[in-house]
Nucleic acid binder design. Structure first.
Length: 645
RNA sequence: GCCGUUGUAGCUCAGUGGUAGAGCACUUCCUUGGUAAGGAAGAGGUCGUGAGUUCAAUUCUCAUCAACGGCUCCA
């Protein structure tokens, strides 16, 4: 007999060799029907695998992340079985579970799967799932496994086997399909009730673009149809928030083939948002002691040789143009220009910290397949600034920058983000990273302390630093799930030296400043793309391109409407009058769809009383208000940049 | 850059080997209507671009450009 302890602290005795599924059955049949896998002493196991020692056990169902993981991994195997039956001779690489769903990479030889073929695959999968075939685990000696795949001519699985040791090699079979697999798996295919193959794409073998491109099929499965329907609905809702769709609907931005890929045309509505963001940045930076500068969009080759961006970054820069025997590049970053401003005049320690800010226009030749709406573009406007400071000032400056991030996030109600602290890898000093071991450790620790003290949630990622120092990236996710760096904050102890920047210290000796690169609002492009999705197009009043629309009941009240408009305009409110010959219902509908925060309905009643009927977008009629009371309220809302929630 | 898909009116989309259609938007007229679509008429497209096959191409083939879904990349 063995002792099994449960999460609630209970301990029960079972015969050795009992499986988690047996145990579940001993508790209740209903539970047994839901068990997908089990956590045995903290390791996720097949629910059917015999337990032969005392163990702590947690039964995993669909409500556990590990349960879903196992479910989707098993679904990948089910898909592989279907693929193999429809495309005999196919070779498989790996088929992991994802956050939501799974994929399997495969080599189909000369054949290919297109999206049209997915329906047939789904059908086959459903058919195989209904057979409720058990997933059977089998341990195998390495030599036997190698022989098996050598005979099959499966170079992919042989490659996988290279990294596995004898004694840890397991195979899983279900139905006619057998695969090298660590597991675990769900008890049988019958658990998989709802199947959706979402897309098919190419994927480089081992993620290396020099390697062969395999076919990757993505899918998602559920234990019932209802969950699949909910998931489908959720995806449709997310699509409505896609910044590309909203940007078009709300006339924020456009693109044109004649302008070029990744080059954004900001329409009047988008330009208003840009101006509001810049106003915020200028106010904030002014208060924090930054000085504004303006620098050209191009510079000579030598600048980027000095900075070290050429040749490493050259592939991401537009090719140079030759003028008067010199090569000029479109700038991909603002820092070298700012360094030159720092260097233009002699600096004393009394001048530090010296903070230069600019909404700098940069051009980056991103690969064509990389472009993505506003999120990844070729011309971008960066909320950039560089702080030149002494080592002693560094911690305080870095903290001030971090505080600025947090202040911005509060204004925009940004709660879902992750700060990634990217560190260096000591073995790569002198290659990927500048060879300053003490400075690396010292600044990394300072940065870590600042983050800890401010209570900012962050994760540390090794070997992701910039070549000139550690950095903090603020990661966000677009509504369709793509991850982006919204903002970045970097420490730089290389550029100062490369540009021979110096200041005179108290001892009358030259010293190289430390530099902090920071861009809390990222770029206009990505930030507005993010805001569109974040607010679902319903901007707070201060950011809304049009803040108020006056809706006269009929032409008879046009003069009054124009008078209301005039008064609001005088208070600095962005306001228009709907002067179309439409019924009020139609005017309201159109204004609602354009997500204008306030609608002012004016008719006989309002005109005679000198009042307004106020309607808030998405909330409906707020009742009648005095004109001045409304102006006071909206001006307060705008000036204090209220979220409008 | 790589794999796959798509490209028809301002927008969303239907359609065909014999040079095109809907809804919304737009223009004009009627309507002056109280909180999410009043009515009528009209205008608008070299069917992404270039080449090929064909008596004939928007439709088939190839190339190219762009967008989309992924991969790779992302100081």
């Amino acid at each position: 007999m063995i002792n099994i302890s449960f999460p609630d602290g209970a301990v029960r005795q079972y015969e050795s060799g009992v499986s988690a599924l047996d145990i579940a059955k001993s508790i209740s049949e209903g539970l047994a029907r839901k068990v997908l896998a089990a956590s045995v002493n903290g390791q996720v196991w097949d629910a059917t695998r015999p337990i032969t020692e005392d163990a702590s056990l947690k039964l995993l169902t669909w409500t556990d992340p590990e349960g879903q993981d196992t479910f989707w991994h098993s679904s990948a195997h089910l898909m592989a079985e279907a693929v193999e039956s429809l495309y005999p001779g196919v070779k498989f690489w790996v088929g992991p579970a994802l956050d939501k769903g799974f994929y399997y990479d495969m080599d189909l030889g000369d054949r290919k799967i297109t999206e049209e073929d997915l329906a047939a695959l789904e059908k086959k999968m459903t058919e195989l799932a209904r057979q409720s075939n058990r997933y059977i685990r089998k341990e195998m000696p390495k030599s036997e496994a190698v022989a098996y795949f050598t005979e099959k001519g499966d170079e992919y699985k042989l490659d996988l086997l290279q990294n596995l040791n004898d004694g840890e090699i397991t195979f899983y079979s279900q139905g006619a399909f057998t695969d090298l697999c660590r597991g675990p798996h769900i008890p049988d295919t019958g658990f998989i009730k709802a199947i959706k193959l979402t897309n098919v794409s190419g994927a480089y073998w081992k993620g290396d673009e020099k390697n062969k491109m395999l076919t990757r099929v993505y899918g998602v499965t559920f234990p019932n149809q209802k969950e699949l329907d909910e998931y489908t609905t959720m995806l449709e809702e997310a699509k409505k928030r896609d910044h590309r769709k909203l940007g078009k609907e709300l006339s924020i931005f456009t693109m044109d083939e004649d302008i070029g890929p990744g080059l954004i045309l900001w329409m009047p509505n988008g330009s208003i948002i840009i101006e509001e963001l810049e106003k915020l940045a200028k106010e904030t930076e002014e208060e924090a002691g930054y000085k504004r500068v303006v620098t050209p969009h191009i510079a000579k080759e030598n600048l980027y040789l000095t900075s070290g961006h050429l040749p490493y970054y050259q592939d991401s820069m537009f090719p140079p143009m030759e003028l008067d025997g010199a090569k000029y590049y479109l700038k991909a970053m603002n820092c070298p220009h700012h360094h030159k401003i720092f260097d233009a005049e002699q600096k004393s320690y009394k001048d530090l910290p010296y903070r230069l800010a600019e909404y700098g226009t940069c051009y980056r030749y991103e690969q064509s397949g990389e472009l993505f709406g506003l999120m990844r573009v070729r011309c971008l406007h960066m909320n950039d600034a560089h702080i030149y400071c002494t080592k002693e000032q560094f911690a305080a400056e870095f903290k001030a920058v971090n505080d600025m991030y947090l202040k911005y996030f509060e204004i925009f109600g940004i709660e879902k983000y992750v700060m990634r602290l990217s560190l260096h890898e000591p073995s790569k000093l002198g290659q990927k990273y500048i060879n300053e071991p003490e400075l690396w450790l010292e600044t990394e620790e300072m940065v870590r302390q600042v983050l800890k003290e401010s209570g900012t949630p962050f994760v540390e990622v090794p070997d992701e630093g910039a070549f000139y120092g550690p950095k903090i990236d603020v990661q966000i996710w677009s509504t369709i799930g793509r991850e982006f760096t919204l903002a970045t904050n970097q420490v730089d102890f290389a550029q100062g030296r490369r540009f021979n920047l110096s200041y005179t210290n108290k001892d009358n000796a030259p010293e190289t400043p430390l530099i902090i690169h920071r861009a809390p609002l990222g770029t206009h492009e990505r930030f507005i793309g993010f805001l569109l999705e974040h607010y679902a197009g319903k901007f707070p009043v201060w950011l809304a391109p049009l803040q108020v629309k006056v809706l006269p009941i009929s032409d008879k009240f046009m003069d009054y409407a124009l008078d209301v408009q005039k008064k609001l305009k005088r208070s600095g409110v962005r306001v228009e009058v709907d002067d179309r010959q439409e019924k009020i219902g139609k005017k309201i509908r159109d204004t609602e769809l354009m997500k204008v925060p306030y609608m002012l309905v004016v008719g006989e009643k309002e005109m005679s009383e000198g009042k307004l009927s106020v309607r808030r977008q998405g909330k409906g009629d707020l009742g009648s208000q005095d004109i001045h009371a409304f102006i006071d309220m909206i001006v307060d809302e705008i000036e204090n940049r209220k979220s409008g929630e």
